[in-house]
Each structure stands twice: as C-alpha cells, then as structure tokens.
Amino acid sequence: MPTAHNAAVPTLITSVQRALRLLEAVGSHPGGAPAKQLAREAKVPLPTAYHLLRTLSHEGYVRREHGVFLLGPAAERLGAGGMQQKRRSMILDSLAHFRDVIGAPVYFAVYREGEVELVGVSDTPNSPACEEWADFRQTAHAHAIGQCLLAQVDEQVRQDHFDRHAMTAITPYTLRDLRSFENRMGALEGAGPVVERQEYALGTVCAAIPVAAGETAATLAISLPLHQEQRLLSAVNRLQREVGALLSALSISISI
C-alpha cells in the first residue's frame, strides 16, 4: 500500500516528457534540424528520438523535409489557439476597463461572415448585462449592437442579412420593416452613437459606437436600465473618448 508521501508524487510518463522536449527542440529551429541534433538537444537517446519523431510526424505535430524536422500543422494549431486565447484576454481586459470607467455593462461585437458575433461582454452583479433572451444573430435589427454593425456595411449586405433573418417585432418598440430601418441608417451621423430604446428588451436602453478595425465591422456598446436613460448619451460619449487609447488592442484582436 503506498505511503502518503508516495501518493502525493505525480505519475510521470517518460515517453510524453521526451516527446515534449523533442517538440520544444524542433520549435527552436525555424529552418528545421536533423534527428541527431534534436535528440542531443532534447537529451533523448537517438533510437527513441527516431521512434517519437515518427509518431509526432504521423499525428501532424512535426513534418520532415529534406532530412530535417519542422513543426507540423497540428503544433501550429496549438500555437494559434494560445494566441487566440491571449487576444481574447486582451479584449476582456479592455472591456473591464471601459466598464469600470463608465459604470455600465460593455459589449464588443463584430459582423463576420454575414452574422452578428458577440465577442465579449463585461458587467458586474450590481450592473448586469442585458439578457440575450432572443438570439442576437437573428434580431440584429432590434438591438443597438446589430444596428451599429449593419450601419457599417453596404445596402446589399444588409438586404442579404434580412433575406436570411426577417425583421420581426420582439417588443412594441421594434422596427418592423426594412424601409424604417434604412431611414434610421440614413439619419446616423458618421461615427456617432446608435441609440436603441426598448427595441430589444423592455426596460432596457442601449447605445453603440462603431470601432475601426480594418475591413471588419465592429462595435462597442453599453446598456442601462430604463430608469437610468438620462445617463445613456453621456456614458456612450465617455466610451467613445476612452476607446481611442485601447483601440489598438481591440483592432489586433479582431481576428478572433
């Protein structure tokens, strides 16, 4: 029966450790390296290194070209996943900053491949975000986030969007037809805020501003309960002033 001390010692799988060291060695040579060099750097016996490299190659973590080993697509996907997580953390940190400065829930969304994509939300228990009770993708006409995103694309893209997601009244205040929507889009002034009052959720007002992110339509938005509506314009104007300092972080994260 194992002692308490032995039970606390993790079971280490030597072959996994060696494979990881080999991967690290391969990754340290962008131009590739031969098996003998990798085995020496990873301190793995050469026969074992050959066996592990064959396995890693079969799984796509390394590839062999002209006698040297390089990182394969599977390893590159792992790296891309880590970068994606880092970018998402940057977005959430930025949203938390805006939330604390403004004192309201803050949303970041993009229009990608014909759909509204809510990338991140930051709120607090005392100032909760608006509940997504109706799918944001299907109700873009009804909320400030969707309205701001659709205002940044051309009329043909909007028409295609509404061909796929028909405009329906989800509250008594929701815009009901494309003509009314286009009239609102035409009344917007450049980079000014899009304001929506109870069109998506009763008792909630929202405002959104466009965010410059290359060719991708993006937006930052806030929401407030109806009884705080008098704060809405000053809060979104404050958001617009604040976003400049952190715009680069959001922009490089747009590829998430």
Rank of each mutant, 00 (worst) to 15 (best):
E189G: 04
H165M: 10
P34M: 07
L239F: 09
T55V: 13
A25R: 01
R40L: 09
A151R: 08
L233K: 09
E41W: 06
Q198D: 09
T174W: 03
G203F: 06
R21S: 08
P225Y: 00
R238F: 06
A212N: 08
D160K: 15
L232E: 04
L224C: 01
T216W: 03
R158S: 11
L70P: 00
A221V: 13
W133D: 13
Y61D: 01
Q147T: 13
D100T: 06
L250R: 01
M167L: 15
P105H: 06
T168W: 07
A245G: 11
S234A: 11
R77K: 15
I170R: 05
Q37C: 05
F98L: 14
F181M: 14
T14D: 13
L247Y: 00
W133T: 15
V211E: 10
H141D: 07
G186A: 15
N126F: 11
N6K: 09
I252K: 08
A8L: 12
L46E: 12
G203H: 07
L53F: 01
T124R: 13
G72D: 03
F69C: 11
E59G: 09
L53Y: 00
R99L: 08
H141S: 14
I254Q: 05
V121P: 06
M90D: 14
P105E: 10
E65L: 12
D135L: 14
G67A: 03
S180C: 06
E76H: 11
H161D: 10
E115N: 15
L220T: 06
T139L: 04
D123V: 09
E199K: 07
L52P: 02
G114C: 11
G244Q: 06
R88S: 04
E132T: 15
L226P: 00
Q230M: 08
R176K: 13
A191V: 10
L70V: 07
P128E: 04
L12D: 02
E155A: 14
R77I: 14
Q37T: 15
Q152H: 05
V157N: 07
E59I: 08
P128R: 04
R88A: 06
E117S: 11
L150D: 07
G81N: 13
G146R: 02
